[in-house]
Amino acid sequence: MAAYILRRILILIPTLLGVSIIIFFMLHLTPGDPAELLLGERASDEALKNLREHLGLNKPLYVQYGLFLKRLVTLDLGETIWTRQKVWVEIRQRFPATIELSVTALMISCTLGMIFGIISATKQYSAFDYLSMLGALAGVSMPIFWLGLVFMLIFSVNLGWLPISGRLSVGVDLEVVTNFYILDAVITKNGPALRDALWHLIMPAFTLSTIPTAIVARMTRSSMLEVLRQDYIKTAKAKGLSQFKVIFKHALRNALIPVVTTIGLQFGVLLGGAILTETIFAWPGVGKWMYDAVMQRDYMVIQNGTLFIAGLFVIINLGVDVLYALINPRISIK
């Protein structure tokens, strides 16, 4: 087991290196250099020259890549081009917002997805099964940026139940400790702020959870059906165990193994979907930050933000693989 984990961690290094190469060279091999991208076509030659020098763009590419790597190893992600903020500082401020949103969305997806999946599997070919699987298919096919706007229209504009965007209402005081607003409100025992933060979280989280919920529901159903066909379930039923016990004590455990992997893989969907969701709801997370950077052509943020997200994603996937090997004794590790 330890050897397996070690090998997986060793594979991580070339993967991350490859990611950094792609991100670096994609920017530098595209037509027009970053200085031109930044200053526009009508910039003076002198301004271009100065900016190139400032950004180190006048050095050969491999030297630039070397410097880029050197900074990465020392965890120096540089400064943003427009606001001259440290990229790390920005990430530290924004990343908790994204995690708060993604984790809430993931919790919604697991709960709803598994409930619908289990009921559908136990009542296969029933009306509930057909409807929920059709719903799941619609969920997988949903343009979430549109769904978010529809939610906004219904729950904010028409019904006025939920705040239309942002993380906190103007005028609500919250002492920021960790940047996880829910956590901060709990730590500082700030009831009104907690209520307000939760209120703001509902719509974006449900929007973001749409696709993962659908995927988890479909996966749970098919995995559950697979297990329910097996002999040991028949035995359990023949012994006279209650339906509830058969499903929750005997079937669910084995059925959940592939579901756990699926859930782990949803982090990528969530981090990607966060760009769309955060943009719609003006949620000040990493996704919105990336979007703004793309709009303002802040290539430092694009480059290093992408690297950060991709690196995180690789590490999460590694964690999922290891977890999978741990919970599934049938997997043989050579």
Partner: peptide, 10 residues
């Protein structure tokens, strides 16, 4: 190892 759609955006 790039999350869904992020690579396309970049």
């Amino acid at each position: 190892s790039f999350p869904y759609i992020l690579l396309a955006i970049v």
